[in-house]
Amino acid sequence: TRVETATETAWISLVTALHLVLGLSAVLGLLLLRWQFPAHYRRLRHALW
């Protein structure tokens, strides 16, 4: 049971790290898009909202 718990903890930390990385890359990508294509971003936002 001790090994299982350790594996579970490792998986949880791995998944958390993955989610953090994905979230950060998504935010960075959005910022980059907004910085590179302001007109396109505004049009996209206008279409979405």
Rank of each mutant, 00 (worst) to 15 (best):
35 W>R: 15
43 R>I: 10
9 T>K: 12
44 L>H: 00
43 R>S: 10
42 R>L: 14
20 L>F: 11
40 H>G: 13
1 T>F: 12
38 P>E: 13
31 L>W: 12
24 L>G: 02
30 L>C: 14
46 H>A: 00
47 A>D: 10
7 T>L: 12
41 Y>N: 10
19 H>L: 02
42 R>H: 10
23 G>D: 05
35 W>M: 15
4 E>F: 13
21 V>R: 06
11 W>H: 07
16 T>R: 01
7 T>N: 13
1 T>W: 09
1 T>D: 07
3 V>L: 11
39 A>W: 10
39 A>P: 14
22 L>M: 12
46 H>T: 02
5 T>N: 05
13 S>R: 05
46 H>K: 06
9 T>L: 13
29 G>K: 06
6 A>L: 06
28 L>V: 02
41 Y>W: 12
19 H>W: 03
6 A>V: 01
45 R>D: 01
21 V>Q: 01
18 L>M: 05
44 L>R: 08
11 W>L: 06
4 E>Q: 12
19 H>I: 01
14 L>P: 05
25 S>I: 04
29 G>I: 12
49 W>E: 00
28 L>E: 02
38 P>I: 12
1 T>E: 11
16 T>A: 10
5 T>Y: 01
14 L>C: 05
23 G>T: 11
4 E>G: 09
3 V>H: 05
15 V>I: 11
1 T>L: 14
37 F>I: 08
38 P>F: 08
30 L>Q: 05
13 S>N: 05
32 L>E: 04
24 L>Q: 08
22 L>F: 06
31 L>K: 09
18 L>K: 04
27 V>K: 03
25 S>M: 05
28 L>I: 06
19 H>N: 03
4 E>R: 12
10 A>S: 11
39 A>V: 15
32 L>A: 14
13 S>H: 06
3 V>N: 03
36 Q>F: 04
29 G>E: 03
4 E>W: 12
10 A>V: 07
8 E>R: 02
27 V>R: 05
46 H>Q: 05
8 E>Q: 02
32 L>T: 00
1 T>Q: 13
24 L>I: 09
45 R>N: 03
41 Y>Q: 05
22 L>P: 03
14 L>E: 02
33 L>K: 08
36 Q>K: 10
7 T>K: 14
9 T>M: 12
25 S>N: 12
37 F>V: 10
30 L>K: 02
18 L>D: 05
49 W>C: 07
7 T>Y: 12
32 L>V: 15
9 T>D: 00
19 H>V: 01
1 T>C: 10
3 V>P: 03
17 A>M: 10
41 Y>D: 07
48 L>V: 08
7 T>S: 13
42 R>G: 11
6 A>Y: 00
33 L>I: 07
22 L>T: 12
5 T>Q: 01
10 A>I: 07
35 W>D: 09
8 E>L: 04
8 E>S: 02
20 L>S: 03
44 L>P: 01
5 T>M: 04
24 L>T: 05
7 T>G: 08
48 L>A: 01
41 Y>V: 15
35 W>S: 15
13 S>Y: 09
17 A>I: 09
32 L>D: 04
49 W>Y: 15
27 V>W: 09
17 A>Y: 03
3 V>T: 06
26 A>Y: 06
6 A>K: 09
2 R>C: 10
27 V>C: 11
34 R>D: 07
47 A>F: 11
46 H>V: 10
18 L>C: 03
3 V>G: 04
25 S>T: 13
24 L>V: 10
33 L>P: 08
27 V>D: 03
46 H>S: 09
45 R>Y: 15
27 V>S: 09
40 H>Y: 11
33 L>V: 10
31 L>H: 04
47 A>M: 08
41 Y>A: 15
46 H>D: 08
1 T>K: 11
35 W>F: 15
48 L>F: 08
15 V>E: 05
42 R>M: 07
39 A>I: 07
7 T>V: 12
31 L>Q: 08
18 L>N: 03
20 L>E: 04
20 L>H: 05
21 V>S: 13
21 V>N: 00
10 A>C: 00
20 L>N: 04
49 W>R: 01
28 L>M: 11
38 P>C: 09
27 V>L: 11
26 A>G: 09
29 G>W: 08
20 L>T: 04
41 Y>S: 11
19 H>E: 06
29 G>P: 05
19 H>T: 03
43 R>K: 12
6 A>N: 06
35 W>Y: 15
22 L>A: 13
17 A>W: 06
36 Q>P: 14
14 L>N: 04
11 W>G: 03
7 T>Q: 12
25 S>F: 06
49 W>V: 00
30 L>S: 09
2 R>P: 12
7 T>A: 13
17 A>N: 01
18 L>T: 04
10 A>P: 06
30 L>Y: 07
11 W>S: 03
38 P>R: 14
29 G>Q: 08
12 I>C: 04
33 L>G: 09
10 A>T: 09
31 L>N: 02
27 V>N: 03
34 R>I: 01
30 L>H: 03
38 P>H: 14
14 L>I: 05
38 P>V: 08
24 L>K: 04
6 A>P: 07
15 V>C: 01
9 T>Y: 07
4 E>P: 06
7 T>R: 13
13 S>A: 14
30 L>R: 03
41 Y>M: 12
